[in-house]
Computed example of a mutant assay.
Amino acid sequence: MLRSTRALMLCALFVSTPLLALDYRIETFSEGLENPWAVAFLPDGRMLVTERVGRLRIIEADGSVDPEPVAGLPEVFVAAQAGLMDVVLDPEYSDNRWLYLTYAHGSLEANNTRLARARLVDDELHDFEVLFTAQPLKAGAAHYGGRVAFLADKSLVLTLGDGFDWREQAQNPTNHLGKIVRLNRDGSVPQDNPLVAQEGAAPEIYSLGHRNVQGIFFDAEHDRLYSHEHGPRGGDELNLIEAGNNYGWPLATFGIDYTGARVSPYTELPGLTSPLLHWTPSVAPSSLTLYRGALFPDWQGDLFAATLAERSVRRIRVRDGMLAGEEILFEELGERIRDVRSGPDGALYLLTDNPQGRLLRVVPSE
């Protein structure tokens, strides 16, 4: 499947632009978090934060961290990149209290990404159930993906990684390595998934040819699903995800291997969908959101990508459906940014990826 005309337009009109002025201030909202990974906003003004080491924390509306982690979590495999990852509320959370968690499951010799859900009742998890475990189980502790987004029909997409040492499997439709999968909220497979009728294919697959997708966001207003993924040395990608498309890894990439060897001689190939943009050298994108708040009118509708290696957040301007430049924000922090979220109060929230991590709140300078 060739990449769409819209994707061509988005890619062709991208121009990098510098940040001209600091029109924000950064406040420490919460601190003392151990390698926080994701934040979710509860309807009552509190927040949930996952810590990679296997804890789910409640942050009160005043920023204080509940000293007792949320009870009811399963055993999580924690090593290197493995651990507790995303937390996302059900689209009907106010009625059903379901929240969704992703985490590494298994042992160093046999593990992969798992999706589960539970109800948050009296600050404890109840009715815990495993919905999906990526297959096959593999050795090592790298490239899990682990981000979740809900689509317009309230089905969900889950990002996965290629397991690092199994990159060729990203092109194999019989398994989940290097894929984005789509599930119903109860873990069943939607019957309109693109590979459901393909003999031998994993029916959960929504798109394939990915390396390690750690950012995904559904723009409901324009019906667009954006994702970004880590390349090796270079070749980090921002993609517009369409059902059934193949995004090329490792057949086509702008990155090279960590040894300096070429992964592929091709940056694009017929039948593979090219990225909207790529970051070379790598910035290590770790989370993706779209700003819809009122505090920063100029940011309305723009994408924000947190980065680990660059220790920044990339603001990617979107104008009339086309990329219109990007700015590098928050480098003054000098910290790895694991998550970026547009908060219900109009502020932008950041999680720093440190053993003493912080939840930061970005508001206008005046």
Rank of each mutant, 00 (worst) to 15 (best):
S312F: 04
V340C: 09
N354F: 02
I328S: 10
N354L: 08
Y349F: 14
P355E: 05
I328V: 15
R314C: 06
T352R: 07
T307S: 15
V313S: 14
D320W: 06
L351N: 12
S312T: 13
N354V: 01
R336E: 07
L348I: 12
T307W: 14
I316L: 15
L308C: 10
P355F: 01
L351G: 07
E310N: 13
L329N: 06
R317I: 03
A309V: 01
T352N: 09
L308D: 12
V340P: 02
L350D: 10
G357E: 03
A309H: 04
G343A: 15
G334Y: 11
D345M: 01
Q356F: 08
I316V: 15
Y349W: 15
R314Y: 00
D339Y: 02
V313K: 08
S342F: 06
L308Q: 09
G346N: 05
L333K: 08
R315H: 12
E335S: 09
R311D: 00
A324E: 02
R341N: 07
R336S: 10
R314T: 14
P344Y: 06
L350R: 04
L323R: 08
R338Y: 08
S342N: 06
R315E: 10
R314L: 07
R311G: 02
G357R: 09
S342K: 05
L351M: 11
T352H: 01
V340E: 02
G343E: 01
E331I: 05
E332H: 11
L351H: 07
A324R: 00
L350F: 12
I328P: 02
R319S: 14
R315T: 06
M322V: 07
T352C: 13
D345S: 07
D320N: 14
R336G: 10
A347D: 04
R317A: 13
L348K: 11
L308W: 12
A347S: 14
A324K: 01
R317W: 04
A324V: 00
P355H: 01
R315K: 13
V318G: 01
A324C: 02
A324S: 05
I328E: 08
R311C: 03
P344M: 06
D339G: 00
D345G: 06
R317N: 12
Q356H: 07
P344Q: 01
E332K: 08
E335K: 14
V318M: 14
V313G: 00
G334A: 06
P355Q: 03
V340I: 08
I316F: 12
E335G: 00
G325Q: 02
D345C: 13
V340Y: 13
S312Y: 11
R319K: 15
L329M: 15
P355C: 05
R336T: 02
P344V: 01
A324G: 03
E331T: 15
R315W: 07
I316H: 10
I337F: 04
V313M: 11
E332P: 11
V340A: 06
V340R: 09
G343D: 01
G325F: 07
S312H: 07
D339Q: 11
E310G: 10
R319Q: 13
M322G: 03
I328Y: 00
D353W: 03
D320M: 00
D320S: 08
Y349C: 03
S312E: 03
